[in-house]
C-alpha cells in the first residue's frame, strides 16, 4: 500500500513538473499559459454582478482534518477551482493550477493583498486524491504568504452537493462494457467569490488568465472600499 501511495505522490510531482513545462511551451494552449492578446478592461471600470450564492460543504484538508468551505473562505475574496490530479489535459486542471500559481505570485509581490484573498482548489476525484496526494500538490504549488488550500472530500456524498451547488460539470463515463472509466469528463471552471459569499465571476479556459483574475480581484476590493 505504501508503494502505491509513493507512486501516487510521484505522479503528482510529475504533473506539477509538466505544468511548469507547459508554461514554456505555450503555443496552441489556453491564453492563461501566456500573454493575453488584448488589453482587458481596467480594474474598477466595470461591474461584476452577483451570479449566485456560494455553496458550503464539508471538505478534507491535507492534514486529514475536516473543515467547512465557508470557514476556509473566512472574510476573504476567494478563487475556487475544481481539479483532479489525474487530469492530463493541458487546458484542464494543469491550466487552473498554473493560473492560480501566477495569481499567487502577483499577490506575493503585493503582500498587503494577501489577507483579503484565499485560493481553494477542490478535487472532484476523492477516490484517488487522498489527503496525501493533495498535500503533495500543495507542497508543489503553495508559495509565500498566500493561503492556498488544496482540498478533497471523504466521499462522493460529501462532494456531489458541492459540485451541484457550483454547477461544476464532471462525469466519469462508462466504456462499452459498462465499466466506469478512470478519467473525468469535465468543463474547466474557476469561481470568484466575494466576502459576502457571492459568486461574482465564473472563468472558463478562454479567459482564465492572471491579468483578468487580478483585475477582477481589484475590482471587488475597490467595491468593498466604497461600501
Amino acid at each position: 500500500m505504501k508503494s502505491v501511495r509513493v507512486r501516487q505522490i510521484l505522479l503528482v510531482f510529475v504533473l506539477s513538473l509538466s505544468c511548469t513545462a507547459a508554461l514554456v511551451h505555450s503555443a496552441s494552449r489556453g491564453p492563461g499559459w501566456g500573454e493575453l492578446s488584448y488589453e482587458p478592461p481596467a480594474a474598477g471600470t466595470y461591474q461584476l454582478p452577483v451570479i449566485m450564492s456560494a455553496t458550503n460543504g464539508v471538505v478534507l484538508k491535507d492534514d486529514h482534518s475536516t473543515a467547512n468551505l465557508f470557514d476556509l473562505m473566512s472574510d476573504r475574496i476567494v478563487f475556487l477551482s475544481f481539479i483532479f490530479t489525474r487530469c492530463s489535459d493541458v487546458n484542464g486542471c494543469p491550466l487552473a493550477n498554473a493560473v492560480l500559481y501566477k495569481v499567487q505570485s502577483r499577490i506575493n509581490q503585493r503582500p498587503e493583498l494577501a489577507k483579503d484573498v484565499a485560493l481553494l482548489s477542490i478535487s472532484f476525484d476523492p477516490e484517488f486524491d487522498t489527503p496525501e496526494i493533495i498535500s503533495a500538490l500543495k507542497k508543489s504549488f503553495q508559495r509565500g504568504v498566500v493561503d492556498w488550500e488544496f482540498l478533497t472530500t471523504d466521499n462522493q456524498s460529501n462532494l456531489q452537493p458541492i459540485l451541484d451547488g457550483y454547477g461544476q460539470f464532471a462525469v466519469r463515463p462508462h466504456d462499452e462494457h459498462g465499466v466506469q472509466m478512470d478519467e473525468y469528463v469535465h468543463l474547466l471552471r474557476v469561481y470568484l467569490i466575494d466576502k459576502k459569499r457571492h459568486v461574482r465571476n465564473i472563468y472558463s479556459v478562454s479567459f482564465l488568465h492572471p491579468d483578468i483574475l487580478m483585475n477582477d480581484l481589484e475590482t471587488l476590493l475597490l467595491e468593498s472600499q466604497l461600501e
Partner: peptide
C-alpha cells in the same frame, strides 16, 4: 447520451470509441 457519460441504449452498436477529457478551450 455520451455528453453525460452514458451509452445510447437504443442503438445496435452502442459503443464509446474514444473520450478526451476537456479536449479544448472553452
Amino acid at each position: 447520451y455520451a455528453l453525460y457519460g452514458k451509452i445510447n441504449p437504443n442503438t445496435k452498436l452502442a459503443k464509446i470509441d474514444e473520450i478526451k477529457v476537456n479536449g479544448g478551450l472553452n
